[in-house]
Design a protein around this nucleic acid. Structure first.
Lengths: 224, 224
DNA sequence: ACGTCCTGATTCGAACTCACGTCAGGTACA
DNA sequence: TGTACCTGACGTGAGTTCGAATCAGGACGT
């Protein structure tokens, strides 16, 4: 992998954190996720996040190059954790069918913060295209871009393997990965954590639909 | 329906258009669709659209209240045409299975302009939340919001009907509508009209996946 | 037919708003 | 003294507002 670089903003390599290991930075990220996830990136004023944390707007630039840079770090973090979970699950099962079921189910084991972060991810992932000016910002952008691509490829590789195992029908694995991930991502365009609809309910419905897209239907239907 | 109001900007009721019935306005919409679809709404400068049409930036405000108002009109137009096509197809077949197949196939009969417009739609539909200041702008926003809801409800009604006909398995129709539309919409997040991938190829793959989500699979797969 | 007056559609340049970002510098703690 | 952290004053750029100029066409008296 090409992403062992320090992408989170040149903080992790500094010899010693003053006393509280980047808590401010984490506070800012949490506030940004909450605002971006609830109101959207564009509707959120950079200064509001400063207020949430209790510092002046200028102080934010001590931690991030720009509002966009902060967003890129959030996206990068989200994509990184998604990929980690993918790897963990593919490692712990052998049968492709089991893995696929476990992957789909795991997609809904989310804290409120993670739901919000998913909302940010699907709403603003498009901003990972189009170049940036600053150094660290461009670096974070490319890292996010690469992680998106990496996750998609990991899914495609897994699906191709599942096809050769006969767990799902043969199809273009890349397209199928896009279809499954697209169906999953579409949820966060409308789902909000404060709704009456709960995650287990969502999970029950959508894991089955995701498996159906893959061709592993759990029910029998009238054929064509 | 509540949308017989004049939402496109108070032009249609004026007694006489100078001589060319709103060609400028149409030019602006075309330029905006092209820019928004290619570069994204936020990355497009309002003044660039004015340049494309060959007028000064301020002249745009003769046709639209704001950049957002222009976007809302585009979204409204897109959603309106989608609903029209939905109605036309549901009217011309009787069997629910046939209708579903026809609906999915029709979703890919698109001109380049329509593809771009779909890109704008899926990328910026979230902006239909969150109130607006101006009068006409808020009106256009609500119209778009209502059309979104209407299209989703129309799909849900149709799917419920298909279930009672036995064409697809029984499930929550509202959720299923969101799943099918979500899978379809996800395409336009990554598909660009200038790619080597052609619409017929897309159609072949994704109509089958959409039908699979509905539970009308065309192939047999290893069951659970 | 022809010049005058009027109106509404369309356009523009200059100025304003507002949010993001920069700069020079201040405080506190090692 | 140096570094982390923070601030107030200021600059910038995109969107928007405002007042005024231009232009086409209708009404009207001659």
């Amino acid at each position: 992998m090409s992403s062992n670089q320090d992408v989170n903003g040149g903080r992790t390599r500094t010899t010693r954190r003053s006393r509280d290991e980047g808590v401010r930075r984490a506070e800012i990220l949490d506030a940004a996720i909450a605002r971006f996830g609830r109101d959207g990136y564009e509707n959120t004023k950079w200064a509001e996040i400063a207020d949430d944390v209790g510092i002046g707007p200028t102080a934010l630039y001590h931690y991030f190059d720009s509002k966009q840079h902060c967003l890129y770090v959030i996206l990068d973090e989200a994509l990184g954790e998604l990929h980690e979970r993918f790897d963990a699950i593919t490692a712990e099962h052998a049968d492709a069918g089991e893995v696929l079921r476990a992957l789909c189910a795991d997609c809904f084991e989310l804290s409120e913060r993670e739901v919000l972060r998913n909302r940010v991810l699907v709403a603003e992932q498009v901003l990972l295209s189009g170049t940036s000016s600053s150094q660290r910002e461009e670096q974070a952008r490319l890292a996010g871009r690469e992680k998106t691509r990496g996750l998609e490829l990991a899914w495609a590789r897994f699906l191709a393997d599942a096809m050769s195992q006969g767990a799902i029908p043969e199809r273009d694995p890349r397209m199928l990965a896009r279809a499954i991930l697209g169906l999953y991502n579409s949820i966060w365009h409308w789902y909000r954590p404060d709704q009456t609809l709960l995650l287990p309910t969502l999970s029950e419905f959508f894991t089955a639909r995701m498996l159906a897209v893959a061709g592993m239907s759990t029910d029998r239907a009238p054929a064509a």
